[in-house]
């Protein structure tokens, strides 16, 4: 299971999102969870009790959006719903999605 190409992210309400592992690794938080000896690394299943499904869905959308565009120039911006903006900002902070993702990936 831990070697699977996909991992499962679980929201506070118990909604499950199956995400491409490589895409989710853009977040150092998730990377840390999966690298260590924590149970997440064995099961490939990360639970986020503080994050609602609506926000997590958007985060997952971002993971794939980032993954699709990781080598492209001049990428069109992803649409962020205004009403979710602040919550998503908190989530972005939680997932450590603040530096330049492309650079971090190279390291």
């Amino acid at each position: 299971m831990s070697d699977s190409k996909y991992i499962t992210l679980v929201s506070s309400e118990g909604f499950e999102f199956v995400v491409l592992r490589e895409a989710a690794l853009v977040s150092p938080t998730i990377k840390g969870m999966l690298r260590s000896q924590f149970s997440e690394a064995q099961t490939g299943r990360c639970t986020f009790p503080e994050i609602s499904a609506v926000v997590l869905e958007k985060v997952v959308e971002y993971f794939h959006y980032w993954y699709r565009n990781r080598d492209k120039e001049d990428v069109p911006d992803m649409d962020i719903p205004v009403e979710l903006c602040l919550e998503l900002l908190m989530a972005a902070d939680y997932f450590n999605l603040d530096a330049k993702p492309a650079m971090r990936d190279a390291v």
Binding site: K72, D77, L89, A102
Partner: peptide, 15 residues
């Protein structure tokens, strides 16, 4: 930066 902007940048721009 090559690739997409970070989620935080996107959020802050929207905000």
């Amino acid at each position: 930066a090559l690739g997409a902007k970070s989620l935080m940048t996107l959020c802050i721009e929207t905000l």
